[in-house]
Computed example of a mutant assay.
Amino acid sequence: MLTAGDEYPIHQTPEPIAFAGSDRNFYDRFFFNGYSADGATFFAAAMGIYPHLNIIDGAVSVLRGGKQSSVFFSRPLNMERMDMHVGGLSVEVLEPLKRVRLKLAETDGIALDAEFTGRSAPIEEPRFTRRIGPRMMMDLTRMTQNGRWSGKLRIDGQEIAIDPASWTGTRDRSWGVRPIGAPDPQPMIPPMPPQFYWLWTPTQFPNLSMFFHRNDDEHGEAWNTRAVLMPDGAPQGSGLHLGEANMDVRYAKGTRRMASATLAVKDPSGRPHTVEFEPMGTFLMKGLGYGHAKFRHGAFQGDQLMTVREDWEPASLTWANPENLHIQEIVRAVHKGPDGETSTGIGAYEQLFIGKHAPSGFKDMLDGAG
Rank of each mutant, 00 (worst) to 15 (best):
P9V: 11
P14I: 06
A18V: 08
A20R: 14
G21R: 06
D23N: 15
F26L: 08
D28E: 11
R29F: 11
F30C: 04
F32P: 01
G39E: 05
A40R: 08
T41G: 00
A45F: 00
M47P: 09
G48H: 05
G48N: 03
H52N: 14
I55Y: 02
R64C: 03
S70K: 03
F73R: 00
S74D: 07
P76Q: 12
N78H: 13
D83L: 13
V91S: 03
L94Y: 07
L97E: 13
E106F: 06
T107W: 01
I110V: 15
F116E: 01
T117F: 04
P126F: 09
I132G: 02
I132L: 15
G133T: 00
P134Y: 01
P134A: 12
R135I: 11
R135F: 13
D139R: 00
D139L: 06
M143T: 13
N146V: 04
S150Q: 15
Q158Y: 09
D163Y: 03
T170L: 10
R171P: 00
W175A: 14
P179C: 00
P179G: 00
P179H: 01
G181W: 12
P183S: 02
P191L: 03
P193T: 02
Q204D: 13
P206Q: 10
N207A: 06
L208C: 06
L208W: 04
F211T: 08
F211G: 12
F212E: 08
F212H: 15
H213V: 07
R214L: 11
D216S: 11
T225N: 04
M230W: 01
G233V: 03
G237N: 10
S238I: 14
N246E: 15
M247R: 06
K253Q: 15
A261C: 05
T262F: 06
K266N: 11
S269M: 12
V275I: 15
E276G: 06
E278G: 09
E278H: 14
E278N: 09
F283P: 05
G291L: 12
A293I: 02
R296D: 07
R296S: 12
G298A: 13
F300C: 04
F300A: 14
G302P: 08
V308I: 03
V308R: 02
E310W: 04
E310Q: 09
W312S: 00
A315S: 12
S316A: 14
I327C: 08
I330T: 14
I330A: 04
V331G: 10
P338G: 05
T342P: 08
T344C: 03
G345S: 05
Y349V: 12
E350M: 10
Q351E: 14
L352M: 09
I354Y: 06
H357P: 03
S360E: 02
G361S: 07
L366W: 05
